[in-house]
């Protein structure tokens, strides 16, 4: 825990003793146990693990989409336990972006409208210009009015990436962003993701089972048996 220190501003995520158990009939199933983690501003962290290791559960907890059974979790210095579901949503608003394995684009909305969606929740004026600008950044300037079903998988994920970055968030979560894409397309998406991340100085938390992808992050953590282990250190940050 080399980062127990001073700069609260630098700390984006902080988890200690995090546990998640679910009831399955009479039995209680332990998914995560006494897990600790912190992520600093501008870092990119990969969480790898086999299928069923609880990666998505952890991502849901870290993003405040779900509540832990035990332990403490802070996002942007704010304890999530102290907040109700609406409070956690308000904390995410405009500051957290998401990229999902299955893109999660709304089928009745055009590419442009999908990107506009998170912006429209905040009191901003430049919604259209900003969305167009980000779609152009991901190379879809000519496909603004296309519906998701008119786009290829790679294009859909690029729309999702634009949507994740359009609010200029502090933190982006990516859940198996290449899981539904072929290798070449996946690689392009990852290049794009890291490029935008670097340019915008965003913090990135990425869940994947793809080790090659994980290695491109500053830190790489393995989720196994409900706990996290560092599998590689590049920048001296520890678990």
């Amino acid at each position: 825990m080399s980062h127990s220190s001073e700069n609260q501003q630098a700390r984006i995520l902080h988890a200690s003793g995090l546990g998640k158990r679910v009831k399955n009939g009479e039995r209680e199933l332990v998914i995560l146990e006494a897990l600790s983690l912190h992520v600093d501003r501008g870092e990119s962290v990969a969480i790898v693990g086999s299928s069923g290791a609880g990666k998505s559960t952890l991502l849901g907890l870290l993003a405040g989409l779900d509540m832990p059974s035990s332990g403490e979790l802070e996002m942007f210095g704010q304890s999530l336990r102290a907040l109700d579901e609406d409070g956690r949503a308000a904390l995410r608003a405009g500051r957290v972006g998401f990229v999902f394995q299955n893109f999660q684009l709304l089928p009745t909305l055009t590419a442009m409208e999908n990107v506009m969606l998170p912006l429209e929740l905040s009191p901003r004026q430049d919604v259209t210009a900003k969305s167009r600008q980000w779609l152009e950044r991901v190379g879809l300037g000519g496909r603004l009015d296309h519906l998701p079903k008119q786009l290829s998988g790679g294009e859909q994920q690029r729309v999702a990436v634009a949507r994740a970055f359009v609010t200029e968030p502090d933190l982006v979560f990516a859940d198996e962003p290449t899981g539904n894409l072929d290798e070449t397309t996946g690689k392009r998406i990852i290049d794009l993701l890291f490029e935008l991340n670097r340019e915008a100085g965003t913090t990135l938390v990425l869940v994947t089972h793809d080790l090659a992808l994980a290695r491109r992050c500053d830190r790489c953590l393995q989720l196994e048996g409900g706990a996290l282990h560092a599998i590689e250190r590049r920048t001296g940050v520890g678990v």
């Binding site: 579901e85 609406d86 308000a90 995410r92 608003a93 500051r95 969606l117």
Partner: peptide, 19 residues
């Protein structure tokens, strides 16, 4: 049914229940 995904996404993006 069709808007459950929209609602979940909007929750993700920070919309409150009330909103």
């Amino acid at each position: 049914d069709r808007h459950l995904d929209t609602a979940a996404l909007l929750r993700c993006f920070g919309a409150s229940q009330r909103q």
